[in-house]
């Protein structure tokens, strides 16, 4: 009998605690958790790419595609089911990810970052000038329903919260498993030495494609959840600053564990909430200083800082 995997245990415990806490937390905390966990899901996808040394500076593309897919389906087709909608977001982003992946897989380093940025800005350019989608203002997403029933505001919020918690824990478990497989372990291998991977008989581009589609699917689902939770979508979801924020969370978190992106995203959300309340004029400065500190002093992100302090203790 092997010892149980610590990450799996921690994730299952986090799931129980978070769902239970959902009944007591004030509404601002629930919203903060939903948005943070959703952003954590995107960062999880970026983390997998970052383990290969790739940084997508356009992940907001899939985040926005997920959000807009939900908004459109809800508005035009009157499908508002709370389970179905996020799946639509995932499907739309995945399809796009598979298609764009055929191009992205050929790119590395700065060129990967630039092409992903280009794609996201293309989508942004499309959104800001499309009047039927509300141009720069975007539009409101209808309240989701459960099996055709419309619940109270409170119940809807709790439901979305539980759904987000379940999704976050679910994808974290899935990615954790993926990172232990041969394909998953090729991520660091690829960053270290692509030539060797090729000479072991495997196509580096295939690994990158898989990672890219995974990242797209996660970002799409997260965008869908965010759109439902916030109740509004607009083109800024696809703008490069959103991508920058997502990359920021990834770097802040580190690549040591699938739990890291969620912790990092939560820290980001907390700083954001309090900074915007008490020191709105220096909020971006705090982010910038934190990012520089991570890059210069903790290249492994918050996670490695945590691990180091635990080893010392």
């Amino acid at each position: 009998m092997r010892a149980p995997d610590r990450t799996v245990v921690a994730l299952v415990m986090a799931f129980v605690v978070l769902v239970a806490a959902g009944f007591f937390l004030p509404s601002w905390a629930v919203s903060l958790l939903v948005v943070s966990l959703a952003r954590g899901i995107v960062a999880l996808g970026l983390m997998v790419q970052f383990r290969s040394g790739l940084v997508s500076f356009g992940q907001a593309l899939f985040f926005a595609v997920g959000g807009y897919a939900v908004g459109l389906i809800a508005l035009k087709l009157r499908v508002t089911d709370v389970i179905l909608l996020p799946l639509v977001g995932v499907a739309a982003a995945t399809l796009l990810g598979v298609a764009l992946g055929f191009l992205m897989r050929r790119y590395r380093e700065i060129f990967f970052a630039m092409l992903s940025l280009g794609f996201s800005m293309l989508f942004y350019g499309l959104l800001v000038k499309t009047e039927t989608l509300g141009s720069t203002d975007g539009f409101n997403v209808p309240t989701p329903t459960v099996f055709g029933l419309r619940l109270s505001v409170l119940a809807t919020r709790t439901l979305l919260y539980d759904l987000t918690v379940a999704s976050a824990v679910g994808v974290a478990l899935g990615v954790h498993w993926y990172l232990g497989t041969i394909l998953g372990r090729l991520d660091t291998a690829l960053r270290d030495n692509e030539v060797r991977v090729e000479y072991l008989g495997y196509a580096p581009a295939r690994v990158i494609h898989v990672q890219y589609v995974l990242g797209a699917a996660l970002a799409g689902g997260a965008g869908a959840l965010t759109a439902l939770a916030v109740g509004h979508i607009d083109p800024s979801m696809a703008y490069w600053t959103t991508s920058g924020e997502l990359v920021f969370v990834t770097i802040l978190s580190g690549t040591g564990s699938v739990i890291a992106p969620f912790l990092g995203s939560l820290v980001f959300g907390l700083i954001q909430t309090f900074a915007l309340q008490y020191a709105p004029s220096i909020w971006q400065m705090i982010l910038g200083v934190a990012l520089l500190a991570i890059i210069l002093y903790f290249p492994g992100g918050l996670w490695s800082a945590l691990e180091r302090s635990r080893v010392r203790a």
């Binding site: 993926y178 232990g180 497989t181 041969i182 394909l183 090729l186 991977v197």
Partner: peptide, 23 residues
């Protein structure tokens, strides 16, 4: 060890596979 595991994992898993635990 991980270097060797990757080399052997890829040798074992052929063209498509790769979704088996490495270690």
């Amino acid at each position: 060890l991980d270097n060797l595991l990757i080399a052997y994992g890829l040798a074992d898993s052929g063209r498509r596979a790769g979704l088996h635990p490495l270690a």
